[in-house]
Structure formats: C-alpha cells, structure tokens
C-alpha cells in the first residue's frame, strides 16, 4: 500500500502531538485566530482596533487571576482565595478613598492585607502541609467574612471607586489601547522572566514535578511556597483593583464570577494542575480565548447560560487533549 502516505499522515499526527505538548501556545494562537475569524463571519465588521481594545481590556484582569492559578498549579497547588482577596482589595481601596492618605493609602492597605492573607495561606500550605485547595478555600472564608465586617464598619463613611482606578481600569488610549496594560505588561514581563530565568522559577517547576527530588536536591519547599502564595495574593489584589476600576463597582463579591474562568484560562493555556508543566504565555492566550469566546457567544445571541455550558465543555475537551498528548511515552 502507499506506505509513504501513511507515514506522512503519522508524521503529521506526531508533529501535532509534539507541538501541543511542547509548545501549546502555537495551536492556542491558532485557535484564537479561528475564533476571531468566526466572530467576524458572524458579525461582519465587528473586528476593529476598538473591539480589540475592549477584548484586551477585559482579558487583562482575567489573565492576572489566571496567572495566580498558573503559578500555584505549577507547584501542584491551586488558589481559590483569589476571588475573595481580589474583591477585598477593590473594596478596601474604595472605602478608604476619603481617608487622609487618599487612594495611595487605600491601595497600600489593600495590597498589605492581601500579602498578609497570602502569607498565612503560604504558611498553612508550606509549613503545615494543608492541601492548597482547602487552605485557600478556608482563607477565602476568612477574607470574605472580614470584608463583610469591614463593609458594615465603613458603610457610613461613604465610598466610591477612586477616579484613578477607574482611569487605569477602564480608559483607553485613542479608544484602542487600554491603560490597564500599563500594569499588565510589566507584570507579565516579570512573571515570564521569573519563570524562565530565575532560580525561584525553576524551583516552582521542580516542586510541582517531583517534590521528593526537589527536597533531595536541597529545596526547602516551605520557603518557596510561602513566597508563592504571597505573590499570588498580591496579584489577585492587583486584578481586583483593575476589575473594580473597570466595572466601577466595589463589592465583597466582585471577583467571584472570575474565579472559575481564571482556572479555566490556566488549564486551557496548557498548565497542568498536577504540577511541573505549563507557563504564563499560554495562560494569557487562554484568557484571550475565553474573552473572545464570550464575545462570540454574545454576538450569536447565546447569553450567559450557554456561555457557561460552552466554557465547561471546552475545559474538559482541552484538558483531555493535553492529558492525551502528555501522558504518552
């Protein structure tokens, strides 16, 4: 038979597998391009620089939250406290808007509170070996409860999302380039560089891939994990501030709806929840894909419920595909 043709076919299949396994970002970009194409076909003329700006602006906070999941998932963990912490950050900043220190004081208090929550989470996960899922869940109860208490205390003082947050969270340059990129681009560079070029980044992968090997090589995982959950909490707070600015709202449950999409973006982006595999580049594309997909479903007149069903299905399919290509050998 035509052996060469068969070999060829086999070759391409293998090439695709390799591609998805080693450089998932390439097929993901392809998927993103297809989605953009589809949305343009569904509603000709929709794709424009302005539209792109809107998509990017919406993706930025999601990508940051997904970054929290990516970093923690690399070590085999997860961070479910990002929603509570992010909401808390936006909320605290809004309530402190009339304080003597103004917006700056609000942001500093918010970030410090987030870092403290992250520190406690990190101690629980790193020192006491509490499962990250449970630890971050418990921490989110604590943060949410305290936010509620704070809410009752502060409700009299008058509150509002500060103008500066609204500006950075929702304004765009020339109707196209969202200003939240001013926060996002440096943060992204820091994370990408941190994962690829620093000793700390290496250790995140090492702990997730094989905790025993990491330990035998001299890694003290608790140090790495405490720092990790502080980083994650601070990132969550930054995302919360941006969301608060974008939506011009501050509530204790503001970020809740973004929690599961954030996990989804990380998974779609090729980060394994089992640890040791993935990166932030894929996660950003994952967040863009989810945002474009949302837009597409809106254009198609398929509102929220369908979006959820489609999101869920996509996660399962994509995760199954990753599992297939990475489990061989």
């Amino acid at each position: 038979m035509n052996a060469s043709a068969r070999a060829n076919k086999w070759l391409t299949a293998v090439t695709w597998r390799r591609l998805l396994r080693d450089r998932p970002i390439v097929p993901l970009m392809g998927l993103l391009a297809i989605l953009v194409l589809v949305i343009e076909l569904a509603d000709p003329g929709i794709v424009s620089p302005e539209w792109t700006g809107v998509i990017v602006r919406a993706s930025v906070p999601l990508a940051i939250l997904a970054g929290c999941q990516t970093l923690t998932m690399l070590t085999g963990g997860i961070d479910l406290s990002v929603a509570a912490i992010g909401s808390m950050a936006g909320f605290v900043t809004a309530t402190l808007v009339h304080s003597p220190g103004g917006v700056a004081e609000g942001i500093i208090v918010a970030l410090a509170a987030a870092a403290l929550a992250g520190l406690l989470t990190g101690i629980g996960v790193g020192v006491f070996r509490v499962h990250p899922l449970i630890m971050t869940l418990g921490m989110s109860f604590v943060v949410l409860g305290l936010s509620n208490v704070w809410q009752l205390q502060m409700v009299q003082t008058g509150a509002g999302v500060p103008d500066s947050l609204r500006w950075i969270g929702s304004s765009t340059l020339a109707q196209v380039v969202p200003y939240n990129l001013l926060v996002f681009i440096p943060l992204t560079l820091l994370i990408l560089l941190g994962l690829r070029r620093t000793g700390y980044g290496r250790l995140l992968y090492a702990i997730g891939d094989n905790p025993v090997a990491a330990r035998l090589s001299g890694t003290r995982a608790w140090q790495v994990l405490i720092v990790l959950y502080v980083i994650s909490a601070v990132m969550a707070a930054i995302a919360g501030l941006l969301i608060s600015g974008l939506t011009n709202t501050a509530s204790v449950s503001l970020v809740d709806t973004s929690l599961l999409p954030a996990v989804a973006a990380a998974v779609i982006g090729g980060t394994s929840i089992l640890g040791g595999r993935g990166g932030f580049g894929g996660t950003i594309v994952g967040a863009l894909i989810l945002t474009v997909l949302t837009a597409l479903l809106t254009v198609l007149g398929l509102p929220e419920p369908t979006r959820q069903v489609v999101f869920g299905s996509i996660i399962v399919v994509v995760a199954a595909a990753y599992t297939r290509v990475t489990s061989e050998s």
């Binding site: 959820q308 999101f311 869920g312 399962v316």
Partner: peptide, 13 residues
C-alpha cells in the same frame, strides 16, 4: 478537580 470544576459551569448553565 478540573473535570468537575468544568462541569460545574455546564450544569449551572
């Protein structure tokens, strides 16, 4: 965790 998280979207949808 991933499967049931994803399915939570589906069932809620």
């Amino acid at each position: 965790i991933v499967v049931t998280l994803a399915m939570s979207f589906v069932w809620a949808g």
